[in-house]
Every structure is written in structure tokens, then in C-alpha cells.
């Protein structure tokens, strides 16, 4: 490891150790709110039956380790004060924020409220396109677009409880958003000459969605997180075909 990298690591250790010290202290304080003596299987009012015993033990050792790490890191940082810390490039951080936004946005924003097939397609398309095109401008635009849409959905799911009709309306709205995004990204692809990546992205996203949703919902009978416009129609179609097959 280069000296700059080691210095960056030890500086990070300093911060982590503080987090650990705070976390373990809070854990100990919270554990003291649990019954400190308890009774079980004939043993009455004994400290060793307490549900606080194990958390206090673990948090105390964690606290000691946190302090040890802090001291170790502090000694290193002080003795190598002249060494600079290595830093990740802005481009690398940009990719990181995009990845976090895509994954967290999908899980916290889209999955709880939008039909899974629609959200999965859009998620996969933007995820694949932004990284397969490997263009910073596309990644930046995708970050803003996806984050904004996800935040809107989080607000909707937190402050409103959409009715059945409301959910279907939202799904239709998402279909429209998908269309707009496809056109928008096609424009980005033309500007950056990444048309091939755009085509591969929507094809891959579509193939995976078309395979994964029926396999889980119809093959393995696993209900998907949100079933709306597409998934419900797919399930209805399955039963319609089954009834037709049975001659009903």
C-alpha cells in the first residue's frame, strides 16, 4: 500500500473509531434500560438471566476495540503528519453516487409503489445505459433524473396512500415517463455517439424483465413487491389461458 493510501486509511480509521465509540456507548446506555435482573426456568431475579447481559458485554468489548483503534490511528497520523492522504477522483465519486442513487432509489422509491415490471425495466435500462455507455455526462444526467423521480415517489408513498385507481393511474404515468426517458436518452446517446449502448441497454432490460417477472410470479408463485398495471394483467392472462385450456 502506498504511504498516501495508508494515511487515508488511518484517517478513515480515526473517523470509524469515533463512530464505534459513540455507537457502542449508545448501545450500553440503551441496554441499561432493559431489565437488569430477570427470572427464567426456576432462576429468580438473577443478573445472568438479564436480556441486557449479552448486549452490554458485546458493546463494552466494541468500545474497548474502538478506543484501541482510535489510539492506533491517532499515533500513526501524528507520527506521519507530513504524509498527504490519497483521494478518490471526482469521477469515481460520481459513479459511486450514481450507483447508490440507482439502488437506493429503486428500493426506497420505486419498488414500494410502482408495478414491479415497470420499475424493474426502467431501473435496468438506466443502470445498464449509464455504465455501458461509460460517459460522464450521461452518468451525471442519469443521477439527477433518477434521484428526482425517486424522491418524488418517496414523498408520494410517505405522505399519500394512493387508492387502487390512484396506483393504476401512477403506473400509467410511469409508462409515459418510460417513453419520455427512452426518447430523452436516445438524444443523449446521439450526442455522445453511444447509440449501440442505448440499443443494447433497452434490449437487455426488456429481456431480463420479461423473463424474471413471470419466472418469479408465475413459475415460483412468489408475489412481487408491487403488482399493478403489468403484473396483474400478466396473472389475469395466465388464469384466462388456463381456463381456456381446461375448456371453461
Amino acid at each position: 500500500m502506498l504511504p498516501e493510501q495508508l494515511m487515508a486509511l488511518r484517517r478513515a480509521d480515526l473517523k470509524t473509531s469515533i463512530v464505534l465509540i459513540v455507537l457502542s456507548s449508545l448501545m450500553i446506555i440503551e441496554s441499561f434500560n432493559f431489565p437488569l435482573t430477570d427470572s427464567y426456568a426456576g432462576v429468580t431475579n438473577a443478573w445472568y438471566v438479564s436480556p441486557a447481559l449479552f448486549p452490554i458485554l458485546i458493546a463494552s468489548i466494541l468500545l474497548v476495540c474502538g478506543v484501541a483503534l482510535f489510539l492506533k490511528a491517532m499515533v500513526f497520523v501524528k507520527s506521519h503528519a507530513g504524509t498527504a492522504s490519497s483521494k478518490e477522483s471526482a469521477e469515481s465519486w460520481g459513479r459511486f453516487f450514481l450507483l447508490v442513487s440507482l439502488i437506493a432509489g429503486q428500493v426506497y422509491g420505486w419498488v414500494p409503489i410502482v408495478d414491479f415490471a415497470l420499475s424493474a425495466f426502467l431501473f435496468l435500462f438506466l443502470f445498464i445505459f449509464s455504465f455501458y455507455s461509460d460517459d460522464i455526462s450521461i452518468q451525471k444526467k442519469t443521477l439527477w433524473l433518477w434521484s428526482t423521480l425517486s424522491i418524488v415517489l418517496i414523498i408520494i408513498s410517505q405522505f399519500f396512500t394512493p387508492s387502487e385507481e390512484g396506483r393504476f393511474l401512477l403506473d400509467w404515468l410511469v409508462v409515459g415517463v418510460i417513453g419520455v426517458i427512452l426518447l430523452l436518452t436516445k438524444g443523449w446517446a446521439k450526442q455522445t455517439q453511444t447509440d449501440k449502448a442505448w440499443r443494447s441497454s433497452w434490449k437487455a432490460a426488456l429481456i431480463v424483465t420479461v423473463i424474471a417477472c413471470p419466472v418469479f410470479r408465475l413459475g415460483m408463485l412468489v408475489p412481487l413487491p408491487t403488482e399493478g398495471l403489468v403484473i396483474e394483467k400478466m396473472v389475469d392472462a395466465k388464469y384466462a389461458v388456463r381456463d381456456m385450456w381446461r375448456g371453461k
Binding site: I103, V107, V111, L124, I128, Y132, V208, A212, L224
Partner: peptide, 19 residues
């Protein structure tokens, strides 16, 4: 390419954790 299969893996992680 990794940018194609890793998003698919992420979707599988989501489905797997939920299922």
C-alpha cells in the same frame, strides 16, 4: 460486459431479499 450483468445481479438481489 460487467455493466450489463451487474445491474441484473442487483435486480436478483432485490428479488431474492424480498421473496
Amino acid at each position: 460486459p460487467a455493466p450489463i450483468f451487474l445491474p441484473v445481479v442487483t435486480l436478483m438481489c432485490i428479488l431474492g431479499s424480498y421473496a
